[in-house]
């Protein structure tokens, strides 16, 4: 079973994503900020990360940088409320950039694309 980490400071978002992804057949971990996300990356052999940008303690950009240092192969999908970050090159280290939407079909499609065997 593929392991996905959802890192977002909003509990409701974490819950929504987890529910949806579990339904798709993935094992889902959660983190409330970048630091927690990094801890999980250290411990768990993850297959994909869904990362929010605006988070307390450590934001998604810094987390992305450190994750890519540890696991360059690990796909990271940025999922954020800020559309404009898409233009900023620091986020381009991510494999995908999605603006959060209540319609999760795009997100699921992206995940599926990265995790198909």
């Amino acid at each position: 079973m593929k392991k996905i980490l959802v890192a977002d400071d909003e509990m409701s978002i974490r819950l929504l994503y987890s529910e949806e992804l579990k339904e798709e057949g993935y094992e889902v971990y959660q983190a409330a900020n970048g630091r927690e996300a990094l801890e999980i990356v250290e411990k768990i052999p993850l297959d994909l990360i869904i990362l929010d940008i605006k988070m307390p303690e450590m934001d998604g950009i810094e987390a992305l940088r450190q994750i890519k240092e540890k696991r360059p192969d690990l796909p990271v999908v940025l999922s954020t409320a800020y559309g404009e970050y898409k233009q900023d090159f620091a986020t381009w280290a991510s494999d995908e950039y999605l603006v959060k939407s209540s319609d999760l079909e795009d997100l699921k499609a992206v995940v599926k694309r990265y995790l198909k065997e």
Binding site: E10, S12, I13, L15, L16, Y17, E19, E20, A81, K100, S101, S102, D103, L104
Partner: peptide, 14 residues
């Protein structure tokens, strides 16, 4: 606003 909207909309879809 967007985060709660995503939650509301997302859960509504669920």
């Amino acid at each position: 606003i967007r985060n709660p909207l995503v939650s509301i909309g997302g859960f509504a879809r669920r």
